[in-house]
Every structure is written in C-alpha cells, then in structure tokens.
Design a protein around this nucleic acid. Structure first.
Lengths: 246, 246
DNA sequence: GTCTATACACAGATAGAC
DNA sequence: GTCTATCTGTGTATAGAC
C-alpha cells in the first residue's frame, strides 16, 4: 500500500489512540448520560430541580444495572430497586411513571447517545483503513466506559414492546452498516480485498459485542481493551488487507 | 502445506460435510433430548410411564422456549407456561417440583448433551486443520438444530444460582478450550501460524455464538448455516494459515 | 421532594377431587 | 395422571402525610 505523507501522519495519530487518551478526550461519564435523560424527559418527570434529578437518576440507573446484571429486568422488583438505590418507592415513581418507562428510557436515550458519538468518531477521515480502526476502537472504548449500559441494552432488548424493539433493532443495524460502508469503500479505494462485506460486518459486530458481553472473562485474564482492540484489528486486517502488503 | 493421500481423502470428507448430511448422520431431535431428561430425572418425576413423560416434556420445553424468547425466564409465569403448553398447573408441578428446577434441568441436561456430541465430532482426527473445520461445523450445525435451547441457555445463565452458574461457566469454557487445543496443536504441527491462540479461541467462540444469538437477522438475509460456516472458516483460515499457501 | 402505608393483581406452589 | 380450587407471599402502583 502506497502511503503518502498525510496518510502516514494520520496513521500515527491512530496508533496513538489508546483507551486512556480516548477517555480524556471524550470526557463523557455517567453524569452526562443522566443530564441527557433529564433534558429529554423534563415534562414527564415530576421533580423540577435539575441537580436533584440528575443525582437521583444516577442512583436509579446504577442500581438498575447492578440488579439486572444478576436477575434481569423482569426479575428486578421495584422494591429491589428502591432498596438498592436508597430511594423510596414513592420517590422512584416520581421519576418514572412505570417500570416499563424506566426500561424504555434507558434503551432510547442510551442508543441515541452511543450513535451520536460513534457517528462523530471517524468524521472527516477519507481513508477507509483509518476509518475502520477509529470506528472499531471508538466502539470498544465506549463499551468499556459504559459497559453496564451496553450489557443491559443487549440483554433486555427482548423485554421491550414491539415499537421499542423495532427502535432497538434499527440501532443494532446502524453499527453494522457503519462498518459495512467502510468495508465497501475500502474495497473501492483498492485498500481492501473484495470479500462478502455484509457477512464480514456481522462478524466484526459480534466481536465488538463479545467485549462487553464477556467482560468478566477478559477481566479475569487481564486482557485490556487496548489489547483486545489490537488483536481483533489484526484479525480483521489479515482477512481484508491485500496479501502483498502483509 | 504438504498433504499426503490420507489427508486429502479426509479433506474431501470434510468438504462434503454439510448441514443436510450432518443432520441425517446425527439423527438427534427434540425427542432424544427429552428422553435424556427422563433418564436423568426418573426419581424426581412423579409420572411413571416413559412415553407420557417424554410427550409432555416436549410440550413443556417447547412452550418454555417460546415464552422465554419473548419475556425471559423470570418474566414467564407458571400460568403462562400452563396455557402455552396445554398442561394444567398441577400437571406441570408433577414434572418439576419448582420453576427453578425446570431451569436447572434445561441448563444441565442440555449442556452435557451438547458437550458429548462436540467431543465426539473430531474424534480420531489427527490433523488440526481438519479438526478445526469439523469442530466449528459441528457446533454450528448443532446450534442450528436446537437453536431455541442455545439461545435460552445463553440468555438465562445469569438467572441461575451460584452452583449452577459455575456449572454453566465451565461448559462455556469447555468449547473455548476445545478450539484452543486445536489451534495450539495446529501451530505445533506447523500447519498454523503462531498467534495469540487464547484470544483467537475467544473470538471464534463469539462468532459461533452469533449464529444462534442473531438467528432472526441471518434468516432475514437468507444466510444458510453452511454459508455462515464457510465464511467464518475462510475468515479464520486467512488469519491462521501460513501465507505461502494462501 | 420524599416518605410510609396500603390497594389489589398476580406470582409460585399444593391439596384433593376425578 | 390430570384437573380445579385455593393458600400465601410478592408484585406494581398510588394516596396522602410530612
């Protein structure tokens, strides 16, 4: 592959993108997530002081993730949630009119949150090789920061009503298409081999998901997110890069 | 790679192994599964006539999978199960002393069932390349035949009590180690490249799981299990086979 | 804004008739 | 072997005091 100077410097940037710098650069955390929920649902939340809302939403969400990781959403009772979050039943119901509303909110706000960040990740980059690396790393890093949400979202998608489930499926396909487009463009640019791009995109998506679905396994083996990223990128590239450059 | 005559004929056999012939050869179906449950739990099931038991277990399991795919195990009430299976509450409880016992039975019997078949799949084969192909295909074909069980087992593992969850985790690692051993042997035999075999085994496992976890997606795209098998084998082989043979 | 007390629907499980 | 009727605990949700 003939790399011109510009591309080489972009590649250097990419090589330097590790989890630590990504986290600093992005500066997202749980609080931002809760603020987003507050903004989107101002009208239906009874409490008016933003600071109070954000503080308590954080408690509610944390507790939800903790309990659901063990028992699943349907196995979590509102009494469980009340105890774990430290809020009373009454308080809980002043933030969410029903248990289902809590589920829908977490899914919806979370998905649009993720999509927005992912969309911006490879913005302005032309080279498909670089875009692939950036998109995959961004996805892994994001799922590292908000792992409980990713796990919850995946596991509880089936508990949603039809309308919300369709929304989820669309979000699921969104990531896959993001990758698919990059693979197709890379092939057009002559950087990648001609492969079954749609199948490849599915399989890459599966590898991305494994990182947050099997968090416990990788933690036990001391596999860092950067190590995982490098490994699957190498795997994918050995399949996609033209052989003479390998 | 120098292939002697024997190996070539084995390879031919493998190439011919498709889902159709596998299914005929294995001849397993839901009934065998229920018979296995009957044998393992003769004492704790109150009903004595094997034929009756097997017939009703099939109804119960089918109904369980149907409901849990939508709501999850904890979201399924015994009344739901009674209605969907066509058996009364009383009848249900004469097959399983509790709802939890139903869950544990499905997980335990299913896992040992799968392990036994997988173990036998590549028995007697020396060549790691062939063993890899056989093991992956067998896993995919198995999960194609009993997809509802695979999906259920994966999704409801977290609902298990500690003891049963440990049993599940051991089963989860079993498949991974099966693949790991093949990769390591292949590298020793000089057939495969030196890679991070443990990472590779995890990622391969993730690809196997994607087949039954995203069944709806692949069905919609008309991807057959044979097509999927060929694709991921190609993917893996481009990573593992020595470049001069590619 | 947050609490406690309570309504009432539905869960898992069993006894005893058939 | 299978059913219906019923026990008792727990579920979601709310009303009204503080």
């Amino acid at each position: 592959m003939e790399l011109d100077k510009e591309l080489e410097s972009e590649l250097d940037q990419d090589q330097q993108l590790d989890f630590f710098s990504f986290k600093k650069q992005l500066e997202i955390d749980k609080e931002d997530f809760c603020k987003e929920v507050y903004k989107e649902r101002k009208e239906s939340i009874q409490i008016k002081k933003e600071k109070t809302v954000v503080k308590n939403l954080e408690k509610i969400f944390d507790a939800t993730f903790r309990i659901c990781t063990r028992k699943g959403f349907r196995g979590m009772s509102m009494r469980d949630l009340s105890q774990e979050s430290g809020l009373s039943m009454g308080a809980l119901y002043s933030y969410f009119r029903s248990k289902e509303e809590l589920l829908n909110t977490l899914q919806r706000v979370g998905n649009s949150f993720i999509q927005r960040i992912l969309e911006e990740s490879a913005l302005g980059k032309e080279n498909a090789f670089i875009r692939l690396r950036l998109t995959i790393k961004t996805h892994l890093y994001l799922s590292e920061i908000v792992q409980p949400w990713f796990y919850f979202s995946y596991m509880e998608a089936k508990s949603l009503c039809k309308k919300e489930r369709d929304f989820y499926k669309q979000a699921e396909l969104y990531t896959e298409n993001l990758i698919l487009n990059i693979l197709e463009e890379g092939a057009e640019q002559g950087l990648f081999q001609q492969r079954e791009h749609k199948m490849a995109a599915s399989v890459i998506k599966a590898m991305l998901q494994d990182w947050y679905l099997k968090r416990w396994k990788y933690a036990k083996r001391n596999v860092t997110v950067d190590h995982y990223a490098d490994f699957i990128l190498g795997f994918i590239e050995s399949f996609y890069l033209l052989k003479e450059n390998n």
